[in-house]
Design a protein around this nucleic acid. Sequence first.
RNA 1: CGGGGAGUAGCUCAGCUUGGUAGAGCGCCGGCUUUGGGAGCCGGAAGUCGCAGGUUCGAAUCCUGUCUCCCCGACCA
Length: 506
Amino acid sequence: MAPPKTAITPTRAEDFPEWYQQVVRAADMAENSETRGCMVIKPWGYALWENIQSQLDARFKETGHQNAYFPLLIPLSFLEKEAEHAEGFATECAVVTHHRLEPEKDPETGKTRLVPTGRLTEPYVIRPTSETIIGAAFSRWVESYRDLPLLINQWANVMRWEMRPRLFLRTSEFLWQEGHTAHETQEEAIEETRMIHQLYEDFLRDHLAIPVVAGEKTEAERFPGAEMTLTVEVMVQDKKAIQAGTSHYLGQNFAKAQDITFAGRDGNEEHVHTTSWGVSTRLIGTLIMAHADDDGLVLPPRLAPHHVVIIPVTPKEETREAVIESCHALAETLRREQNYAGDPIRVHVDERDLGGGVRKWEWVKKGVPIRLEIGPRDIESRKVCLQRRIEPANAKEFMDRESFIRNAPEILADIHRKLLDRLTKFRDANITPCNALPNFAEHWSHAVAGWLLTPWAGSREQEEELSKEHKITIRCLPNDLQDGRDATCIVTGKPTMCRALWGRAY
RNA sequence: CGGGGAGUAGCUCAGCUUGGUAGAGCGCCGGCUUUGGGAGCCGGAAGUCGCAGGUUCGAAUCCUGUCUCCCCGACCA
């Protein structure tokens, strides 16, 4: 049977959502579990998360944050404290109501079942986010302006009982980091929110090779309880938007609800200003939808668990040992002598006793940036057969072994640049200014539609009406796409300098 | 919560209308041949057909109940 033309069926063009699922499966990153809406993250997917985690964590530490850990279970009453927040999360909370199980024999079947007993006097909510329980700790920890700012981050799992789960993009349980900070003044808190916003933008660009549109959410799209929500929005290959990271200025809303006060410089009691911000395992879904192709995952080099996979080609038994030995020697040299983005080159030698094609395609589907095939002929000529994931799967380049060792970091850097460049061009080509309502409506009648940038002075109600009608949202009021000139708002007809970016979203 | 669909081998599914020994492909295990290309041939293991009840000599198949999952809406990092 002839092998399929692409490693993934269907292709992106044929059925994008199904393609996505197949990429996850082909790369062996995760699978659905027996627990509704929850996924099992497999080693290849988790290794990616670990790289995201350690690289982001380093940036948080550099900017003065410390990690801590708070309980998974939140007393129900805590969630009730901030009204908007309570309302925002009420419909998606899993609740713990009992604390023991009693074996009980079913009189009909004779089987023993475990029945929850021991009802809790106050139920617990499995955290959908931790503002409230961290706020409670902050109220104990903060006494004086000298205790501020308080800069805390936690790496944790959270649970939101989603109606429509999708691996990595939307699961009932997901992994994330949530930063929570408290500040003496509004200015400081807003500065923190903006700094993290910028940090997320930089991180996506420099580590995931993903360009974003950074901006502010409208009131309708804001985090429940926030005064201001900043977001980084990613356009993925079907031109939909993914909200990849948000940072919120919470004002004094939570401080007042939770009594987080301090003695100010003038001796008066004041409420702190808080922020919160997070990115999640959704980044992995974003990365797939942004970079993967019809042959599977394509990893940005900084996050790839292996930068280079060496596939020893051993057609003859008598040269087998020498080939494998030579591959390991090359791997050692690369690890010892070269760095990429501050880390030693991560090299893996795949010496499994499988056909060359089988191994090659496995690493293609897993998205490894560089594959090297090395056989007896290459050893003799001191060359490597170099294949880059961003090139077609059958593209080969023979390079001197020494010059590969010397150039490996630059090849990885080049791959990163090309990924970023490709996606930047795609994004820019699919953001269109739109100044009139009829054009606006026509645009959204297409199944696949890029984003529209419109002059905007509408109300929350007008925004929600348009959103509902076209199944779109204002992704953000972009920071950098404001031209500073007056134009006519598409719904109100009023002159406005504000530009809103609309799109369909995941 | 509304509207559709499906539960049979590890995975994807056929079989059910018309009741009569449990099937295929992929994967897995073993052997041989291959190994610069996702290989071939031969052999093998694997399922109380979601669960409970009913009809029947006999139920994956018919009937009743029940649970779960998937898809389309509403919610959403």
